[in-house]
């Protein structure tokens, strides 16, 4: 449905992305990479804010730029930095955005209250957005991205500013609608995608490092991640021969999660998590 073919993006001499090839079918895709790896550049190309220097992006076989408005009609986008008009209420803002998205008034009138309810802003729908917190603005952003019931939903760091409860609510929203949509979720917060993404895309050094399911990724580390209890003084020495993924203070000792090197006799194998994979990929 959405294909990225040998896409390279250069800004002058700087290469932001090189030879990216990806195919998307309905489902949730997590785009995971540290800051500055090219996530936002990739997303901006998908939403026609910028175009590849080389290669092409196809929507059902047609180049997205050629489709123009016909492509954008199917698009929902939440940028990293959500722009809005402070004088508008969420209701006014969503009315405006629905008009920009080409929704007729009747459809918009039905859809706006539903979305405000969905993101938990029904009770403040008449208040000006200048009084809103960052999390509330982000929720308005999520609502605007969903206005046109998009077939392709692109979200850049969508959970930034959301509290844990809101994050769970947001994950559930995405999960519910992933059946017939392509959802691409860019984040560097592993837990955001661990439970809902069908596939994960890792970007490293401006290339696609891997594109697999969570199980496949974690499966690679099966039997290779351990936990052991160490004394404070042993840690430095231990770190020289092992890759420490996490540590936790437990009274006088420290519980270390690690991989690589010889496991101490009292170490126990643990189930690898996506965070382990992420940390190892980008260490």
């Amino acid at each position: 449905m959405l294909s990225i073919k040998n896409v390279t993006k250069k800004y002058g001499k700087f290469t932001a992305l090189e030879n990216i090839t990806l195919n998307f079918t309905p489902g949730v895709y997590g785009l995971l990479a540290p800051n500055g790896a090219g996530k936002t550049t990739l997303l901006k190309m998908l939403v026609t804010l910028t175009f590849p220097t080389d290669g092409e992006i196809l929507w059902n076989g047609t180049e997205i730029g050629k489709l123009g408005a016909r492509y954008r009609e199917h698009l929902g986008y939440l940028p990293q930095e959500m722009g809005y008009y402070p004088q508008y209420t969420p209701k006014q803002y969503l009315s405006y955005m629905s008009a920009l998205k080409g929704l007729d008034r009747k459809t918009a009138r039905g859809r706006i209250p539903q979305l405000l309810e969905l993101v938990g802003l029904s009770d403040v729908c008449g208040k000006k957005m200048k009084k809103f917190s960052g999390g509330m603005i982000q929720r308005v952003g999520i609502a605007q991205a969903l206005l046109n019931d998009p077939m392709l939903l692109i979200l850049d760091e969508p959970t930034a500013g959301l509290d844990p409860k809101e994050r769970v609510r947001f994950r559930n929203i995405l999960s519910d609608m992933s059946k017939d949509k392509i959802i691409i979720l860019s984040t560097h917060i592993v837990s955001d995608v661990e439970s809902i993404a069908n596939r994960l895309i890792f970007l490293k050094d401006h290339h696609v490092l891997t594109e697999e399911t969570v199980q496949e990724l974690c499966g690679r580390l099966d039997g290779r991640v351990f936990e052991a209890s160490l004394h404070e003084g042993e840690i430095e020495e231990f770190e020289r021969s092992h890759t420490v993924l996490a540590r936790r203070q437990d009274g006088d000792s420290v519980t270390v999660r690690f991989t690589g090197g010889d496991a101490p006799t009292d170490a126990r194998a643990v189930t690898p998590t996506l965070e382990d994979v992420f940390l190892l990929s980008y260490r």
Binding site: V47, T48, E73, E81, M82, G83, Y85, L100, K101, G102
Partner: peptide
């Protein structure tokens, strides 16, 4: 005009530039 607002608007059917 505001960059981040325009960024969202540009991804809509009717772009702000055209408007």
């Amino acid at each position: 005009s505001d960059r981040s607002t325009a960024e969202i608007e540009k991804t809509c059917k009717y772009t702000p530039d055209r408007i």
